[in-house]
């Protein structure tokens, strides 16, 4: 994850309390989505950014995961994300995300 984005995530978690923060990602691949989730839950696995060794345990979803999608207005989702469901490997993304959540998320 971009170093500046890691810095902002860390600041917001401190400012609002990690239990009040949710991170939503839009990554193109399961692996990249999982990497982003791991970064905000268990720390930066690439040891490069401000979240290195910081286990925030934030709740993190990909925008295409069914439990998140269910909370959106269906029309707005369709207009903004709908087409990408035909493009992305949603099953792979969901599998990666739930794996990371069950291992590292502290606010499930």
């Amino acid at each position: 994850m971009d170093l500046e984005n890691q810095k902002r995530v860390k600041e917001f978690a401190e400012q609002y309390g990690p239990e009040n923060v949710v991170v939503l990602v839009g990554a193109a691949e399961g692996e990249a989505a999982g990497l982003a989730a791991e970064t905000v839950e268990n720390g930066d696995p690439t040891f490069a950014g401000p979240l290195t060794g910081v286990q925030l345990g934030l709740l993190c979803y990909h925008v295409c995961e069914p439990e998140i999608k269910a909370e959106f207005d269906a029309n707005v989702y369709e207009e903004n994300v709908g087409m990408m469901e035909m493009v992305l490997d949603v099953d792979d993304i969901c599998e990666e995300m739930s794996d990371i959540r069950s291992n590292y998320c502290k606010y499930l």
Partner: peptide, 18 residues
Amino acid sequence: AILKGKKVIVIGDRDGVP
């Protein structure tokens, strides 16, 4: 609800969902 009342951080992707 997962999102209601929460502070949400969005990390989009140029080649996924922005």
